[in-house]
Write a protein that binds this DNA or RNA. Sequence first.
DNA 1: AAAACTCTCAACCGCGCACAG
DNA 2: ACTGTGCGCGGTTGAGAGTTT
Length: 253
Amino acid sequence: MGRSPCCEKEHTNKGAWTKEEDERLISYIKLHGEGCWRSLPKAAGLLRCGKSCRLRWINYLRPDLKRGNFTEEEDELIINLHSLLGNKWSLIAARLPGRTDNEIKNYWNTHIKRKLHGRGIDPQTHRPLITCTPNKPTAIDTLTTTANDNVGFQINMQKTKKQQPPELSNINNEKEDSNSSSGVTTDEVYPELNLELSIGLPAQQKRIISSSCIQVNDKFSKRRVCLCCNLGFQNSQACSCKSMAMATTNNYT
DNA sequence: AAAACTCTCAACCGCGCACAG
DNA sequence: ACTGTGCGCGGTTGAGAGTTT
């Protein structure tokens, strides 16, 4: 059956917005308010997809947007929030008035990542890099990131009703401490932050065997897979599983 | 001067979730 | 319980600006 398209693509403009389109959108939203994005383009006389209108408004035309460079304080706030929330750009943006998720995401990818690498910190894990060269993450870093992000932790964020601020619960102190390179918690630096977060083990599907080994239970088989071995680090310092066989997809039931 | 290369960021795309019927 | 619709999110792309050769 498939999903119905969000708009009739053959009758919509794409690419950069013109001044006239911006003005139409602004004046329509000033008159009628936000919302009902699907029907907005037609009502506003725009040959645009509703999603495109929403994005243009939220990321560029909204009057409360703070344009211009990020301050040092904003930088540090983003870094701290990212260490707690990961790539949850909308949650991060919700705590930076006047900034959009898209803006923060772009800023993260173009500036902050580099900044953290310069400090010797892995931007994904917020842990010190184990580097061969000063600024580049190694395969081991990638491995650690993969294991921690995808297998080791599952971040549970309780979703709430629309339009309400997200409710996250119970910051895991252990994680926070390990991520805080200065030893100062986010609570101390940003007491006004309400970051409720809980972290738990992932459900049944995958289980950590050792730091680099995961157990994968899928509908075909149960098997152990060593990420180190798969990346060619078997029998090295990076790999402690001492079992090349684990790198294969042999069943381990 | 211009070609090649790099960087930035606005915009697009596809997916998942919530909700109404 | 199921299905369709709309919205919002995160990842990715690509045009254009800036820089280097």
